[in-house]
Write a protein that binds this DNA or RNA. Structure first.
Length: 615
RNA sequence: GGGCCCGUAGCUCAGCAUGGAUAGAGCGCUGGCCUGCGAAGCCGGAGGUCGCGGGUUCAAAUCCCGCCGGGCCCGCCA
């Protein structure tokens, strides 16, 4: 497919040949320009020639150009700038080829990349509580990266790991078993009831009660063993997970498989993994010092305690090894739930009579918050050391905290602090479901004010809520801490998800009213700056996707989508389409608008933003 | 003490991968634009020592070093 990317690559190859024939091998760049007046693509090759050959910039340019012969010469005009840059303009033929391709295949189509088998794990929230806005960041990052991988043509499986044998679940169980909380819940959603009421209270009491602490450690042991308590836990945990899933699904996320910590333990995975670790020399036995009697990673991090039990990191290692096929899969599989997109969500089962489902992958991504990065880094080192053909990739993101204003709204007093970190234990968190309902309510109010006769108001308000929430978390760089503010979250104008939906809706309306477009398109008549900029940016679709993938930067796609939408809006305000008198121009603009709808549609799909024809 | 991340306009953020030519958005403030494809929009104005200092370079918001400020991690917890 011809695109901005294909031309950049062509110019790169041609420049390499040119430099080679001059006798140079230097690290030049071919990149986007900073301003429209500098052309569409630029290279710094002449600077480097000038320096290496000790000639003037203008001589360097001449030297370069006499040896420069791109394959698609007819699509590019070269425009050297006296100060030393060599700029390139993409010409009408290029844009016509691109636009006609998009229109004939109703979209951009295949992106050129080597497909891989990939697993991505995200969400993985302890099953004792509801998802809060911090978890939402994890879900949205994971789901969007999944959508990007999928769009690029990779074979992807989405995993969600349930730690059903941990201390948080144990606390919850004690709340039910020992403290008299009603297992049937009250009238709120079961995950909210467990997290907001039972767990918070149970944890507080247990921490100050020796008897209950003792019971808790027994519960923990029994959970790993799989007795009567485990059956009870299973019942509670499944209900919580089912409710958590509803929250994720609301945001447009989906999964392929649930993995349970208890299944890995009951299937005896640790011994298999431990054997491999020992045989590869990845673990060390410590015979003296404070870690005497323990097995460690890198001689530091304890994996197996002196009493022979394992620490939590061992479970992460088991899971990592299983994902990448370093240990064999012994599970059976069955359907856990049907999802909104029509796909089944599978779960492992311990009796292996189900079909084989999981085929180990070559690359595994895990989405985690920054606090867990060091330990995951250690796991990555160990795993990639054991099998260098496998890749264990970490996507980490900054924590989501609550602004002072937001904390006060959930009755948390934070004194003079500017923000507060969320904590399930102390009851300081902002539940995702609450956020969703609040944004939906605000959207409904706006709809009633501006577009009261709209059909499906409920569905539209939901679509707006999803877009606002997803976009606001995606537009911010992964590394950055987010201080969540509910008032900001309820703003639906400006650089927001609804802005993208709105621009696409406008474009779709034009396409509907336009009538039939004559093909092939000739967009050569669109020579105003705003028209050309729109066309140019459309051609950058695969360039931006690949950049986003390579750098694991979802804000790259978010800003690209925003930029495109803004350019479309400028075009929309400045140029008429349907009632344009000049038939040639009218048709060309119709082509541009149609191509915009295809590309924007694709981008919103990747961002997980619902496409609304009316809002 | 060791390590990781962040610092760009009053506020929230792009830009940094691969150094480049006039640093961009949104919110807020302010002045305009609906008898015309949807005003959740568009156009204009005010607002910037790119945390500070040094270094590399023809060229630094971008790379390197140091410092300051903010956040986080460093358990035989999970």
């Amino acid at each position: 497919m011809i695109s901005y990317l294909s031309e950049i690559n062509d110019i790169k190859r041609a420049s390499e040949r040119a430099l080679k024939s001059i006798g140079l091998q230097v690290n030049f760049t071919v990149s986007e320009t900073t301003m429209p007046s500098f052309g569409d693509i630029t290279t710094n090759a002449a600077f480097l020639i000038s320096k290496a050959k000790k000639v003037s910039p203008s001589e360097a340019i001449t030297l370069f150009l006499t040896n420069f012969a791109p394959a698609s010469q007819e699509l590019i005009k070269v425009a050297p700038h006296p100060n030393g840059f060599i700029n390139f303009w993409l010409n009408t033929e290029f844009f016509n080829k691109f636009i006609n391709n998009i229109i004939s295949q109703k979209g951009f189509g295949h992106v050129d990349i080597m497909p891989q088998k990939i697993a991505i794990e995200h969400t993985s929230v302890n099953p004792n509580k509801a998802l809060h806005v911090g978890h939402a960041r994890n879900v949205i990052i994971g789901d969007t990266f999944y959508r990007l991988l999928k769009r690029l043509g990779h074979h992807v499986i989405v995993l969600n790991y349930i730690d059903d044998t941990g201390i948080q679940v144990a606390d919850l169980l004690i709340g039910f078993k020992e403290m008299g909380f009603n297992v049937d819940g009250d009238d709120q959603k079961f995950d909210h009831y467990c997290g907001d009421v039972v767990y918070v209270k149970a944890n507080k009491v247990i921490e100050n009660d020796l008897r209950l602490k003792k019971i808790r450690s027994n519960v923990l042991k029994e959970l790993e063993g799989g007795g009567e308590i485990y059956t009870f836990a299973n019942h509670i945990v499944s209900r919580v997970v089912s409710e958590q899933l509803k929250s994720s699904w609301n945001l447009g996320a989906r999964y392929d498989l649930l993995n349970w910590e208890s299944h890995f333990l009951h299937a005896g995975y640790w011994n298999k993994v431990f054997d491999i670790l020992k045989s590869k020399g990845a673990v060390q036995y410590i015979s003296e010092g404070k870690n005497a009697g323990c097995w460690t990673l890198k001689g530091k991090k304890v994996l197996v305690r002196s009493d022979g039990t394992t620490v939590y990191t061992a479970k992460d290692l088991i899971y990592a090894a299983w994902k990448l096929g370093i240990v064999n899969d012994v599970f059976g599989y069955s359907v856990f739930a049907d999802q909104w997109d029509g796909t089944p969500l599978m779960t492992t089962v311990l009796n292996k009579n189900g079909v084989k489902l999981y085929d180990s992958v070559d690359v595994s991504y895990i989405v985690i918050d920054q606090r867990q990065e060091p330990i995951q880094q250690m796991i990555k080192d160990v795993i990639e050391d054991i099998d260098p053909n496998k890749k264990y990739k970490i996507i980490s993101y900054g924590l989501v905290a609550l602004s002072k204003n937001t904390a006060e709204k959930i009755n948390a007093n934070i004194g003079n602090e500017r923000f507060v970190h969320m904590s399930g234990r102390s009851g300081i968190f902002f539940n995702l479901d609450d956020l969703y309902l609040m944004v939906k309510k605000t959207a409904t109010e706006i709809i009633n004010k501006r577009n009261a006769s709209l059909e499906n108001k409920e569905r539209v308000a939901e679509g707006i809520a999803v877009s606002a929430i997803r976009y606001s978390l995606l537009r911010i760089d992964l590394e950055k801490q987010i201080i969540f503010d509910i008032d900001d979250a309820l703003k639906l104008e400006g650089d927001t998800g609804p802005y993208l939906q709105y621009s696409l809706a406008r474009a779709i309306k034009i396409v509907e009213k336009f009538g039939s477009i004559k093909i092939p398109c000739d967009v050569g008549v669109l020579n105003s700056e705003e028209e050309r900029e729109l066309l140019l940016n459309l051609t950058k679709f695969d360039y931006k996707l690949i950049k986003s993938y390579d750098a694991v930067s979802l804000s790259t796609i978010a800003s690209y989508a925003h930029e495109l939408a803004a350019q479309f809006n400028v075009f929309y305000e400045g140029r008429r389409v349907i009632d344009e008198k000049n038939e040639q121009i009218r048709n060309a603009r119709g082509c541009a608008v149609l191509a915009f709808t295809y590309i924007m549609n694709d981008l919103l799909q990747i961002l997980g933003i619902p496409i609304l024809k009316d809002l």
